[in-house]
Amino acid sequence: MRAVGPVRRRERTLLRAAGRRLAGAAAVVLGAATLAFAALQLLPGDPVAVLLGPATSASPQVREQIRADFGFDEPLPVRYLHYLGQLVTGDLGRSYQRQQPVTTLIGEQLWPTVQLVAASVTLAVVVAVVSAVVTTGRRSALRTLVELVELVALSTPHFWLGIVLLTVFSFRLHVFPAAGAQDLAALVLPAVTLALPVAGVLAQVLREGIETALEQPFVVAARARGRSRLGVRLRHAVRHAAAPLLTLTGWATGSLLGGAVLVETVFGRPGLGSLTLQAVTSRDLPVVLGVVLLSATAVVVLFTLVDLAQLALDPRLRTAAAL
């Protein structure tokens, strides 16, 4: 009986900590939605005019009809609650331009972007881990070179990297197709383009994490107990280095989602990017907001997962979370 008590209590405090993080995440999503609503209200000019396009000369009756249909007549708080209610039911509104539900439009374009981002995340993590682990703790020409490449990679704009890769591999060497999303080969260049700058950052942070961990006194203590250099790295340092890397995951995903817009434009890939760009150009705000809200939710979910993973990884955070 006595043993059960503390364990239960610990589980409960952890659950409470997790709950608090979820509540925080919900608050952020609510904030993003409020921001989106504010943006809709801020749109200068008459939304009906935007909706009808510059060329139309619709009668006032038609305009009123549209107004009522889109709910532009209601008072502000009512519209706000109405908007939130729609969001909760998964309704992101209708596109001004295409007269289709935003959810449908996003649904059609979601898959290629998800493919691209997933491929890039995998690639970035693999490249980063290899380049960091191979060069950690060594002063060599290889390390200098790798660090230089990382620096160049993380400073290179996606769109330019894409164009250079296109020029070399598609138009000169004809290895990969220049556009489209038909097969896996068409995914290679966009994924590389999207992954490399992020990989540069991740590699630097991971290397720094391992090296910081290796400078800690507990490493000396572990070696004094007879652990080998490699053993210390595997048993001690890696877990310490994982924390900063995890922290960056949420950021990296956001960065990849944003970068995808550019990369999809460069490679003429279908996806959320081209959808967003068209919507921005024609100021089709509901579509832009739909994409932004979706990304924000994805980022917040990831941040929360990362937070919980950190809790699992670091007992000190668990103690702090119980406060």
């Binding site: 507990f218 203590a221 070696r223 107990r225 007879g226 001690h236 670091d314 007992p315």
Partner: peptide, 24 residues
Amino acid sequence: WRAVRGRHIGLVLQDALVSLDPLR
């Protein structure tokens, strides 16, 4: 050396908060 460290000669450092791995 590895066979000697910890087995025949032990080492105790100053601050146990950082000399013990905080994650273990």
